[in-house]
């Protein structure tokens, strides 16, 4: 239930931002979920809703918008680009679960499919990001 920890960070971060912007209520939160983190959307959504109930009145009528961001991986050695979904089947269940917890361990468990280098970048689709917050002052 790692999704709960990430949901909690989203809620706390949104409340922090609302305080900074002097928002009395938060109406919409858009969360971008990177493909690499392999979040269970239902659990994540459930966790967000559960946390709203214990987070005070500011979030009472909030709507969450969850958007998945496909990954882009770029090899630093040969310049090849590919997606995590292209290589996921080659990973063991344990490797895949480790990437779910710490996306950077992809560099440990995967290689560039073209040149075999471990030196590549996650240019898109890493983890959970709070994209936008809307509210009323």
């Amino acid at each position: 239930m790692h999704e709960w920890a990430l949901a909690e960070s989203v809620i706390l971060s949104a409340l922090e931002a609302a305080k900074k912007e002097h928002l009395k209520t938060i109406t919409d939160i858009t969360v971008q979920i990177g493909e690499l983190q392999q979040i269970e959307r239902d659990i994540f959504q459930f966790a967000l809703k559960e946390m709203v109930t214990s987070s005070g009145s500011k979030l009472k009528n909030v709507t969450f918008h969850l958007k998945t961001e496909k990954s882009t991986l770029t090899c630093t050695s040969c310049g090849h680009t590919w997606k995590f979904s292209d290589m996921k089947k080659k990973l063991s269940e344990q490797e895949s679960e480790s990437i779910h917890f710490i996306p950077e361990v992809l560099f440990v468990h995967a290689r560039c499919p073209k040149c075999g280098s471990p030196d590549f970048e996650i240019t898109k689709g890493r983890g959970v990001t709070l994209s936008t917050i809307k509210g009323k002052r």
Partner: peptide, 26 residues
Amino acid sequence: VFFTQDKPSPFRGNDISNIILELLAI
């Protein structure tokens, strides 16, 4: 090590910060 299964770990600087952040957050 729980996530690398003790394999070689080639990380760049920003990856290290992300790993630390993730470990501290979860």
